[in-house]
């Protein structure tokens, strides 16, 4: 039987222990983006982080990725204190990150090439992944010749080809139109469901500002407060059965109920963040 809810007793993949992060702003002041966040994520869980824009979601992912060092507190990856980049994770950034001078095949193969695989082996495996994301006819195209949705697929293949056990995603589909977006979400869940080598699922930390997307995808939704000094204000388990049909899911009673419950918390934070943006302008 497919195990969906049993991840609570799996080993801890990621742990944030009272993590805070300060930025120095251009006018020399200190801006506390993330304040005293503690969080542990079980291996194989799909966790979504939501919060108003500018609250520190990307900062949190960058801390988990090791691209930023916490000002205080600790990040532990599979029980070890983080040093340098998180080599157990891939990271799908909010921005476009495909190398414009490499074609689809070379972009997908990049991580393997960097790891020292021969070009022939890397390309063979890249071609498998290009087929899995349905882009075989475009293997020799450059990113500038692809649509936004296609570029996201290539980026997904570029990340997932590495078989790393953790996947960080920062609003990966926010730039896409509604239909492409739902398609990509479905593909993401399918990929996640297969796991690495068909067995263990990857741990996914998925950042979004869209609560619907968060509930539809995740096992757990974490709500961050409006910045500055963003904290975790709520954690909600999402016990919707898997596999999920994303076309139908959003109208089910269970979904709507969860949405109401989480939105009642998130709403206040969104209003606060809009008020503070208004005050600055």
């Amino acid at each position: 039987m497919r195990q969906t809810q049993g991840f609570m007793n799996r080993p801890i993949a990621l742990e944030l222990d009272r993590v805070s992060h300060d930025f120095r702003t251009s006018d020399g002041r200190v801006y506390r983006a993330v304040d005293d966040v503690s969080l542990s994520i079980s291996a194989g869980a799909f966790v979504a982080i939501v919060g108003p824009s500018g609250c520190g979601k990307s900062t949190l992912l960058n801390l988990i990725a090791g691209l930023l060092m916490p000002t205080s507190g600790r990040v532990r990856v599979e029980g070890h204190d983080q040093q340098g980049l998180n080599r157990r994770a891939t990271y799908m950034f909010q921005q476009e990150t495909l190398l414009p001078w490499k074609d689809v095949r070379d972009n997908v193969a990049l991580g393997l090439i960097l790891a020292g695989l021969s070009k022939a082996d890397a390309h063979a495996r890249a071609d498998d992944w290009i087929a899995r994301v349905g882009l075989t006819p475009f293997a020799s195209h450059y990113p500038s010749q692809l649509s936004g949705g296609m570029r996201k697929r290539v980026t997904m293949a570029q990340n997932w080809i590495l078989d790393r056990p953790q996947v960080l995603m920062d609003e990966p589909f926010s730039a896409l139109d509604v239909h492409t977006r739902q398609l990509m979400e479905t593909e993401l869940l399918a990929l996640w469901d297969v796991g690495v080598a068909g067995t263990t699922r990857r741990t996914v930390v998925f950042v979004t500002h869209d609560l619907e997307e968060a509930i539809a995808l995740a096992d757990e939704v974490i709500v961050l407060s409006a910045g500055p000094a963003s904290r975790i204000v709520a954690r909600h388990a999402v016990s919707l059965p898997r596999p999920r049909d994303l076309r139908e899911l959003r109208t089910t009673d269970a979904f709507v109920e969860l949405y109401r419950a989480i939105w009642s918390v998130l709403r206040g934070e969104v209003i606060k963040s809009q008020a503070s943006v208004g005050a600055h302008v």
């Binding site: 691209l67 476009e96 960097l114």
Partner: peptide, 14 residues
Amino acid sequence: DRALVNNVRMLGAS
């Protein structure tokens, strides 16, 4: 582009 640099570093580049 910083995002390109960070992405390639995350993919394992020396």
